[in-house]
């Protein structure tokens, strides 16, 4: 009951940082809980990773122990029979194309909607925003037949083009918000100096929006790398599959061989884990910003 009063009396939003009194009991319980959840999140992965290094007999005999010796046979076999080299290559192509496309188009359109004179700016924005609320399922059937008519179904474009188009709503919204936060006087100054609109955008405003672009790149990269339903529907040929989809078909083909499956899954998640560990802060900041600004 005393708290609302306290809230009114002390509206100061201090940065805090003061540590409260050391309480060993609490600290012990805190670390107990933290470790418990650490195991909850980690044990399934460790189980898979260690199975990847075991022979089938060893898995059958001791399914949960750590491998006696690290055997790379499973990993090697999974890499070649599972065609993971091809799937990884495809995924890199898809990520490069879709992330670039989304970022370039979203920056241009977001900039126009934020800072350039446009008739009917409001309605245009609303039409793009409505796209955020339309689930992929509502457009996938017509897009599928549209791609078929364009003869694109057996090509990389079948995932790249809709992959860009369906993420524009989010990208434009994010970048427009970012450009609106920049002082428009900067653009005016550049124009007075004789820069045309493209130069103003490219050389003055775009460099200032790097933090926004970083958020967009991170989100689109994770989304594209892990995309499942869109390539499942639009990517028909095995040799064009991205790695998430390839992993599923690999899993379906070798269900009985546990060592091989574990190896395939391990290979499949490895690049993302490495990238995540290297760029952790960017990833977490990107995801947080993406959530809180949308």
């Amino acid at each position: 009951m005393a708290t609302p009063a306290a809230a009114q009396e002390r509206p100061s939003y201090g940065t805090g940082g003061r540590r409260s009194r050391f309480r060993p009991g609490w600290s012990l319980m805190q670390y107990g809980l933290l470790t418990f959840f650490l195991l909850v999140f980690l044990v399934p992965f460790i189980w898979i990773w260690s199975s990847a290094f075991k022979e089938s007999r060893e898995i059958a005999r001791d399914p949960f122990g750590l491998p006696a010796t690290l055997r790379w046979d499973n990993l090697q076999e999974a890499w070649t029979t599972g065609q993971f080299d091809r799937y990884m290559g495809n995924t890199v192509i898809y990520c490069a194309a879709i992330v670039t496309g989304v970022v370039v188009l979203s920056c241009m359109a977001g900039y126009a909607l934020a800072l350039l004179p446009l008739p009917a700016r409001g309605p245009i924005l609303v039409v793009f925003l409505l796209g955020l609320m339309v689930p992929f399922q509502s457009v996938m059937i017509p897009i599928y037949y549209f791609l078929q008519d364009l003869n694109l179904l057996g090509t990389y474009w079948a995932f790249i083009i809709p992959g860009i188009a369906l993420r524009l709503s989010f990208g434009i919204f994010l970048m427009r918000g970012f450009f609106r936060g920049l002082p428009p006087e900067l653009a005016d100054a550049a124009r007075l100096d004789g820069a045309n609109e493209w130069q103003t955008f490219r050389q003055v405003m775009l460099p200032l929006s790097v933090p926004g672009i970083a958020t967009l790149v991170v989100l689109q990269f994770i989304n594209t790398w892990n995309a499942f339903l869109m390539p499942l529907v639009f990517v028909q040929r095995d040799e064009l599959r991205p790695v998430a989809l390839g992993t599923l078909f690999f899993f379906g083909r070798f269900t009985a061989d546990r060592g091989l499956i574990a190896a395939g899954v391990t290979i499949s998640m490895l690049p993302m884990i490495v990238i995540f560990l290297l760029l952790q802060r960017r990833f977490i900041e990107g995801i947080t910003a993406g959530a809180l600004k949308s």
């Binding site: 359109a109 126009a112 350039l116 446009l118 793009f128 549209f146 609109e197």
Partner: peptide, 22 residues
Amino acid sequence: YRAGYLFLAPSVILYAMFMIYP
């Protein structure tokens, strides 16, 4: 409005073809 239209055009075309039309 030329600059605005040109900046917006690629997105609008793609969005119209693969979102609005479908």
